[in-house]
């Protein structure tokens, strides 16, 4: 099962490599990983999307928690949460028909065209990973994707619950 883990850790040199090293050392899976400082710049927040059964997840959470730099880890998928991922995708938009169609699809998914070239559109879209997958599939049916980049997902719990020091 897919899980989204939020990790709050010291913004120290090497902290990220300890997390990544742990996942490879113990053969845990990483589907996506994002990292950035938080509003408190002594802290970093990492979001990892991973896949594993309950036993593997228990070990992942415990092993990450054991790292000295890690302050807190939580499995967002255990409760209600908001999940978002950013996609930037460059597609072929050669003629009026394809431009119109790409614009229409983009609007339907609430994307934004953020750059236009002679023969390309660049679209920005945020949403759940599922929504991004669906958008890419739809685009693929209409035009050619030249390049795409995804941020990996980030997430936050709904309601009062907060991951903080």
């Amino acid at each position: 099962m897919r899980h989204i883990l939020s990790i709050l850790l010291e913004n120290e040199p090497g902290a990220l490599s300890r997390i990544v090293g742990l996942f490879s050392q113990r053969a845990f899976n990483i589907e996506s990983l994002t990292v950035a400082p938080t509003d408190d710049n002594t802290l970093s927040r990492i979001t990892i999307a991973t896949i594993g059964d309950d036993k593997v997840l228990e070990q992942i959470v415990k092993q990450v928690n054991k790292l000295v730099d890690v302050i807190k880890i939580t499995d967002l998928t255990e409760r209600k949460h908001v999940e978002r991922e950013l996609l930037l995708v460059k597609v072929v938009a050669m003629n009026d028909k394809s431009r119109t169609e790409v614009k229409r699809i983009s609007d339907i998914f609430r994307g934004a065209i953020v750059d236009i070239g002679k023969q390309i559109y660049t679209i920005e879209l945020t949403g759940s990973s599922d929504k991004l997958n669906a958008f890419i599939e739809t685009l693929n049916n209409e035009t050619e994707i030249i390049e795409s980049v995804r941020s990996g997902c980030v997430g936050i719990a709904r309601g009062e619950k907060a991951l903080r020091v």
Partner: peptide
């Protein structure tokens, strides 16, 4: 050496 030993230590420090 901090990189070399990462999987076999409890923790490590780069003094700067």
């Amino acid at each position: 050496i901090v990189g070399c030993t990462r999987p076999i230590i409890k923790h490590s420090f780069n003094c700067r």
